[in-house]
Computed example of a mutant assay.
Amino acid sequence: MSGEGHLAARPLIEAPLEFRLRSGGMQTGDSAFVLCPICDAPAYIRKSTRVTPTVKELIAHCTNSGCGHTFMSQVVYIHTYNPGILQRPGFDLVLCPRDRVPHVLPPRAAPDDDPDQMSMFAASG
């Protein structure tokens, strides 16, 4: 057998887990992570429960096999940056103070940038 001593390109352990994020059991994808508070590795969100319209509890499992921490976290609504079109009668969400709304600006050109390089942020004309 050629390549002896090397691991085959397949999982060593078959351990299918059912990762969920949405209430009602709808599967998310592979991008539902929070950080483990012990080792800062990504942790899969295994289950979530909606406690109130603005609070969700998450059960998570650390991906670091040396840590293996399982824990519960909460995701809590803080404020709205930009209200949506839909309204929910009797449910008023707090608006973010105007001076705290984040603004994302295009990156500035560095002195060593190539002046002939096209930029998607450059003004047209």
Rank of each mutant, 00 (worst) to 15 (best):
T28L: 07
S119Q: 03
I78V: 13
L95Y: 02
G66H: 09
R88I: 13
R88P: 01
G24N: 09
A15K: 13
I38C: 10
A9T: 00
C36P: 01
T54Y: 01
H6Y: 07
I13H: 08
H79A: 15
P37E: 08
T54W: 01
G25V: 05
A109G: 11
C96L: 08
S2I: 10
D114C: 09
L17Y: 04
A41W: 12
P111K: 15
D112I: 15
G3E: 12
V75C: 05
N64L: 02
G125E: 02
M120H: 05
C67A: 10
P111H: 14
R100V: 04
P89D: 15
F91V: 07
T49F: 04
M72S: 09
Q117H: 11
P83W: 04
P102R: 06
V51D: 11
D112S: 15
D92E: 11
H79V: 03
Y77W: 11
T80A: 14
A41G: 10
R22Y: 11
L86K: 01
P42R: 11
A9I: 00
H69A: 11
C67L: 08
S48F: 01
P115M: 15
S31W: 08
R20Y: 05
P42F: 06
P89W: 10
S31Q: 14
L35G: 11
F19W: 04
G66D: 02
P97V: 14
E57T: 13
N82V: 08
T63N: 07
